[in-house]
Write a protein that binds this DNA or RNA. Sequence first.
RNA 1: CCAGAGGGUUGGGCGACCGCCGCCAAGCGGGUAACUGCUUGGGGGAGGAAAGUCCGGGCUCCAGCGAGGAACGGUGCCGGAUAAUGUCCGGCUGAGGCGACUCAAGGGAAAGUGCCACAGAAAUCAUACCUCCGUAUUUCGAUACGGUAAGGUCGAAACGGUGCGGUAAGAGCGCACCGCGUUGCUGGUAACAGCAAUGGCAUGGCAAACCCCACCGGGAGCAAAACCGAAUAGGGGCGGCAUAUGGCAUCCUCCUGCCAGUCGCCCGGGUUGGUUGCAUGAGCGGCGCAGCAAUGUUCCGCCUAGAUGAAUGGUCGCACAUCCGCCUUCUGGCGGUGGACAGAACCCGGCUUACAGACCCUCUGGCACA
Length: 111
Amino acid sequence: MRGYNIIKKRSDFLAANRGKRYATPGFVLLVKDRQDDDPAIRLGITITKKVGNAVVRNRMRRRFREMAREMLGDKGKAGADHVLIGRDGGIDQDFAELRTDMARALDKLGK
RNA sequence: CCAGAGGGUUGGGCGACCGCCGCCAAGCGGGUAACUGCUUGGGGGAGGAAAGUCCGGGCUCCAGCGAGGAACGGUGCCGGAUAAUGUCCGGCUGAGGCGACUCAAGGGAAAGUGCCACAGAAAUCAUACCUCCGUAUUUCGAUACGGUAAGGUCGAAACGGUGCGGUAAGAGCGCACCGCGUUGCUGGUAACAGCAAUGGCAUGGCAAACCCCACCGGGAGCAAAACCGAAUAGGGGCGGCAUAUGGCAUCCUCCUGCCAGUCGCCCGGGUUGGUUGCAUGAGCGGCGCAGCAAUGUUCCGCCUAGAUGAAUGGUCGCACAUCCGCCUUCUGGCGGUGGACAGAACCCGGCUUACAGACCCUCUGGCACA
């Protein structure tokens, strides 16, 4: 229904650190192939308290999830974990701009 | 109209499309059933502070959280409200303001200990630097002894203040008024206030310093706790026997009770995960009644988020505020910007802190007019 599952374990987040990464002013995208038989795409979002208060962090997470809903099913890599790390450039960034960055990042790492 | 005081409400609005999380209904499918998957439709979805986690409760577990004491912590004018409070309401006293009103950790300093820098003679065992007055001496500058604490000096503060009498000079030494203490009467539930008599000044401040007094408080927390449930191990329940010793949530004593041993019988146990807890409650709205008020209450109506790597987002349109720039000019026009503080996590009652603006009510002091 959503096109992807949610990463829940801390160890999976840490494992994604060893995957490929692509950085933009608004976020950092990590992609790591799990190398198992499961073709499901998984997504995790991390935003530290350094970025802002709860309102700012919630809004950023929701915008990231909206982008993931739009394009992760098409452009995401099957069987891989995708982790988005929020950066403070993404607070005021225009959503359209954020989306083109996301498309570029997925194209680059999805191959 | 100007300046000000107190209090309340609101917290961006309307609309379109695409999404997210619960709930309800219907249809189709799976299942004996509980229930569950998909589709469609309907309806709901952050706050006044959701925040800080500073108090008070509910609820859950710790054997009863039972009695007394110690320790520790908290509270501190009086009365009331409340489930309860350190909160709220009403009052008292003191301080500030012309006033509306505001502020106050506001019990005890004649139980004890301690502190009060600098300055000053002296900061509470008290005392006398310059003065003042008397006597004696005198080289007429003063010195010695005694009296005194009114004046000067220092300071935030100086064994009560002002005036008159008195005196060698002075002093509550005497008197009047004020202040203070004690006693009595009156008013008030009380804090306290008023009046009268009397004492004769004896009693400086600090208890958000130790302390004393009165009152209150058992501890831990929804990651509490209960249930369902793959593998491995300690295990759990019931009954009999035993009752010495030890243990049971800050410590000691006491009471009631439980556990640790052994024998027999029976049951399997709970990390990840799931369900319950988990939203009908000290609930919200309205009329009336009681009360100065906080608040209480009869009746009527309403059901109002429930996530768990954690649901409210994305893209726009229309007006309305904000801010910026320009033109114009005393008020409009044009263009741009873009909505204060801030996100529920078991639930309530408070406090504190943050907050763009908008609206309303009551009151005070001025000015002007009728």
